[in-house]
Design a protein around this nucleic acid. Sequence first.
DNA 1: ATGAAAGCGCTAACAT
DNA 2: ATGTTAGCGCTTTCAT
Lengths: 358, 358
Amino acid sequence: MSSKVKKRTLINDIANHLEVSIATVSLVLNGKAKQSRISDAVAERVLKYVQEVGYKPNHLAKSLRTGKTHVIGLVVEDISNPFFATVAWLIEKQAFERGYRIIYCSTDNDPTKSKELISMFRERHVDGFIIVPSEGIEEEVSTILREQTPTVLFDRFLPKLPTNYIVVDGAQGTYTATQHLLEQGFRNIAFVTTDSTQTQMEARLNGYVRALEEQQLLPLVKRVAASKDSEHLIADIQDFIKDNRACDAIIFSTNYLSIYGLEAISRLQLRIPQDLAVISYDDHDLFRLYTPAITVIAQPVESIAKNVIDILLEQLQQPSDQAIANNHSIVLPTALIVRKSSIRQPEPVPATRKKAAK
Amino acid sequence: MSSKVKKRTLINDIANHLEVSIATVSLVLNGKAKQSRISDAVAERVLKYVQEVGYKPNHLAKSLRTGKTHVIGLVVEDISNPFFATVAWLIEKQAFERGYRIIYCSTDNDPTKSKELISMFRERHVDGFIIVPSEGIEEEVSTILREQTPTVLFDRFLPKLPTNYIVVDGAQGTYTATQHLLEQGFRNIAFVTTDSTQTQMEARLNGYVRALEEQQLLPLVKRVAASKDSEHLIADIQDFIKDNRACDAIIFSTNYLSIYGLEAISRLQLRIPQDLAVISYDDHDLFRLYTPAITVIAQPVESIAKNVIDILLEQLQQPSDQAIANNHSIVLPTALIVRKSSIRQPEPVPATRKKAAK
DNA sequence: ATGAAAGCGCTAACAT
DNA sequence: ATGTTAGCGCTTTCAT
């Protein structure tokens, strides 16, 4: 008994010390002093003493009682991908300010892992979900929807399910990028993408195809397997480029494909953009810093994050009934950021007269 | 009442359905059937039914009752840095297998943020801590130590505090790297590091200085501010290289400094290693893929992760009393992985007669 | 071998 | 205006 380590302060201790009831303390702490007509004097004393001893309510007990954990589960494809990392970070910051905590997990786009993570989060009683859905998880998402857990998808959505989602107009992005290359005079434009058939990847492909078809040009699409082995991916892209020497420009459908692509191009000792113009979907530090800087189809990360968290918090705040019918489906525009990698070089290049492009 | 959404299954429902007591169910579920001499028949029925309805105990209630959350708080400097990301991922995997969950946070090396995160984790009742300590958080770490919460530091430690820690022999790493450059015939070797005075950064610097002093050579150290502005860092390094044209080799003390350094070198149109040899502390995908591949002082990430989690789980499993005196302090060796960037090029280069380095 | 019941710390409806 | 008290879902001691 006396060997016990110093215990945490409890709401009981507060009440005892102040000689008020524990309910009074609880009410004051939860900002319900006014509506319970607790005297300002008492409320102040409570607040002061709580502050003094640094009392923190036990979250577990609170959550058990209220059924709310104030935790949001964030399920992304790969938290080490700068796109997801940035969005996650922005979401976390905003959620934090409004009293919510985020717990993340990466699915690696694996449906099994996605399902496990969703059910893990359910077990942990998250109040809401933010999900970048991999394919084949309709059932799990249905379940959380049925349980009325507020949920927002982003980056892609599940066409069969009525959910909130925030996506980007990838088709418009690649369409504009392709047009830009055409305007620059490139004619043999290839598109390197993954073998995924998810909504966002298909959209990116379609935008490219449409732009070419409008000019009666034939698409040239390379699909690489979504492998983890970087050497293999690089070699694959390298072979593709070698086999298509006529190709004078490439659009990569994701940031990591571009990185492998740049490596492949460098190994082939091709010059960008003289031998091959390059555009990447999704911006990245490296693309700004690369020599030459790489033109990108940038996604509006701040806006994505803001929309996601705003919609989720709105639903979280609701009195927990209907909210079903009115799902938000938001499609945000991309922005083409033109850098050196997609600008046609005039044949004779006076190296000293380089235009200073900030 | 009848308008209620379908409720989750509770332990009560199980007990009712099976017409046994709730205690029996609980005991069976916690593997204490044998020691409570519950009949195998009953135990089996319970397990079978639980399986059937997919009953999952409520973690919150369980934790509130037992005082254990089976959650470990992981506080790193920057989860988007591949070194920390990899270690975190390995730790998470092993912890998961043994029934623990990890929640992460990045401190950005900011003491205030570190303190907030630690206290947030305390509030969330994590069972243990894994911390990459920023400077000035001795007090908070003391607190969790006093509360007997199992804790392991890694990457660096707090010299004033008796804790478990796993670090790497950075001094040996940079010493060996410097020697390697000297053996290759480089004489003007610079060291680019941050302005941090943390244990691991000082060690890296010291190894470099010692190797040079043994040869009566003068160190050339550039300290860049730990800023977040990449352009600024690149320009800073660029200026440093320009101002020290005699310098023929550089060791960078962290992976991100190397990345900025490579960009600086590329902008100066210097060739690696002909004009400037390069070694980075810490390996990275990019360094393997870069042309030329970059020599690195690699940290044993698997071993770090394994040691961290083993020690923490050992302490977590202990009967929660002493365990104080016997702290583990483990220092792991680094490995120099020699690639092209630090190999002196013979003036006329017979490219085919390259020595196979490992 | 099994069941009853006392909490873990907190909230909120209901009394006073 | 403030106090009493019944749970939230689970574990575990003690009786039987």
